[in-house]
Design a protein around this nucleic acid. Structure first.
Length: 523
DNA sequence: GGGGTGCATGTCCGT
DNA sequence: CGGACATGCACCCCA
């Protein structure tokens, strides 16, 4: 720490700025963008270590709120304080002490504002809407690119830092930028909605647009689901009342799915500045789960009431959006890898012409054993407990599944005791998997039809199930041919100009290219 | 002997 | 380090 003291003659807390202390020690503070750590005096350093950071640094700042349970003052607007509180789905905040000792929910769903709100899980990660932060009621976040480094900072108009997160090098090149349109209802205009796959892979999640797919009632139900998961049986009851009938919807055909896959059409949601890290791993290689999820604490862009992003309306009908789970017991524990990535177009296909609404619940990439001949589909524990009917016996209970063609499949939903835990499986899936020709790497998406609570199980083929050798052969053959034709056309054009030679009327390159594009052959 | 079932175990990942 | 999950394997049943 002596070296740190030599590097900074004063405490690096701007509110303190104490000179080199005569007593006490320098302490290590927050990590610096340039490397190393901030050097703090003993007082500030101790405050930082003991999570009273904001009491020292931001006494005069806005963004102070009271814990909904104990009333403790919490600062909710800075990086250092983000671990000291939790945002409640029903509104308000909760300090870490109350998080460890949960009590009754202080706010009912009627209290929650009826404005657009991100799904509860998003609220946990994004933060609340501005109207819920009395300290900054009218401030709007702007996603800005820090030109000095590869940082992304969400900064309010008052330059009050809300979130600053170091990102890896190269991530800033295709950063999404949003601009507020000051006139009217504060709509959001997005520029350059193109992200590299690398960028997309680092995005913690893509927010699900709060479109017409969810009724206000469902939002209210979701907030109610914030109750004790073990005591909450809303979902299971709805499922039970629906006779445990599920629909197996072919959410897409093969070609169309590939056209909307994340490989070829990176998921871009203007309402979502960040996505989860597993996205890329899941997309590029369903068998590789090397990437770790990155959860950033940030806020959703301000969207006016009724102005929620509509992919169809805004020209993004094929976006494969990672939709945070809508509700369910234990949904807060659902890993982002299981968040359903289903396009609104697929949702519409499942729902058909009816007025029903499809609520995506979760999805799973089939493993080799899932798609094998054993006929057992291992279900993620959190998902099974959150969205499937509760079972107390290992034998479980039968589930009748109906596909898009009206054919019903009979599964057995059960669990195995496993290391003092449970391992949930769906048995008897072999006929279904064989009929639908599912393979390891394909994705099964579980959704629910509202109203009624019927569950839907769609699927999509893995992006890389396209036979690469065949595809490569196509390219290996067609690419030289196209190159030759291009050169030939140029040669003919030169002959025409120099010798008034009438060029041969070959098929224009653009036409061939268009044809190949329609065949989804990209060179 | 083949297939199904239940459990055990190793690996991965989140905390 | 513990939980979740993929997968291996032993056991059982049946043709």
């Amino acid at each position: 720490m002596a070296g740190m003291a030599a590097a900074a003659a004063r405490c690096m807390n701007a509110a303190c700025g104490a000179p080199a202390p005569g007593v006490g020690e320098w302490r290590k503070g927050w990590p610096l963008r340039s490397g190393g750590f901030a050097v703090l005096c003993d007082k500030c350093g101790l405050a930082f270590e003991q999570l009273v950071f904001c009491d020292i640094f931001h006494q005069k700042e806005s963004g102070w709120r009271d814990c909904s349970f104990c009333g403790k003052r919490l600062h909710c607007g800075c990086v250092a304080s983000k671990n000291s509180f939790d945002l409640l789905d029903s509104g308000g905040v909760q300090c870490v002490n109350c998080m460890k000792n949960p009590g009754p929910q202080p706010v009912s769903c009627q209290v929650a504002p009826k404005l657009f709100l991100p799904p509860p899980n998003n609220q946990r990660l994004f933060g609340k809407s501005d109207e819920l932060l009395p300290g900054r009621p009218l401030e709007s976040p702007s996603l800005m690119l820090d030109s000095r480094s590869d940082d992304i900072a969400i900064i309010t108009k008052s330059n009050h830092p809300f979130m600053v997160k170091n990102l890896e090098i190269g991530q800033s090149s295709n950063i999404l930028r949003q601009k507020e349109i000051e006139n009217g209802a504060r709509q959001i205009k997005w520029e350059q909605p193109t992200l590299s796959i690398g960028d997309m892979g680092r995005m913690p999640f893509l927010i699900r647009p709060q479109s017409a797919l969810e009724s206000p009632q469902s939002q209210c139900t979701r907030r109610d689901d914030n109750r004790d998961p073990t005591a909450d049986s809303t979902t299971s009851e709805s499922i039970s009342e629906a006779g445990l009938s599920m629909s197996l919807g072919i959410a897409n055909n093969g070609n169309k799915m590939e056209a909307t896959s994340t490989m070829e059409r990176p998921m871009v949601s203007p309402t979502t500045p960040f996505s989860e890290g597993r996205e890329l791993a899941t997309t590029l290689s369903p068998f590789q789960h090397a990437q770790r999820a990155r959860h950033f604490l940030t806020r959703p862009p301000r969207v006016a009431e009724g102005a929620a992003f509509d992919p169809m309306r805004d020209g993004f009908p094929h976006l494969r959006v990672a939709r945070p789970p809508a509700e369910g017991r234990g949904r807060n524990q659902l890993l982002p890898r299981y968040w359903p990535r289903i396009t609104d177009q697929e949702l519409q296909q499942i729902s058909g012409d009816s007025n029903s609404t499809i609520v995506p619940l979760f999805e799973k990439v089939l493993s080799a054993s899932d798609a094998g001949r054993i006929g057992r589909l291992v279900l993620p524990k959190a998902c099974a407990e959150a969205y499937f009917p509760p079972i107390s016996q290992p034998e479980g209970r039968p589930l009748t599944i109906q596909d898009a063609k009206g054919k019903e499949w009979h599964f057995q939903f059960r669990f195995w005791p496993n290391n003092n835990s449970r391992m949930y499986v769906l048995e008897g899936v072999t006929p279904c998997i064989q009929s639908l020709q599912l393979q390891a790497g394909d994705t099964v998406t579980f959704s629910r039809i509202e109203p009624g609570g019927k569950l839907v199980m769609g699927f999509r083929k893995a992006t890389n199930t396209v036979s690469l050798p065949v595809s490569l052969n196509f390219k290996a053959i067609l690419f030289p041919i196209l190159c030759l034709q291009l050169y030939f056309n140029v040669f003919m054009l030169l002959l025409h100009r120099t010798h008034r030679f009438q060029p041969l009327q070959l098929v224009p390159f653009s036409v061939i290219h268009s044809f190949l594009t329609q065949m989804r052959i990209y060179l």
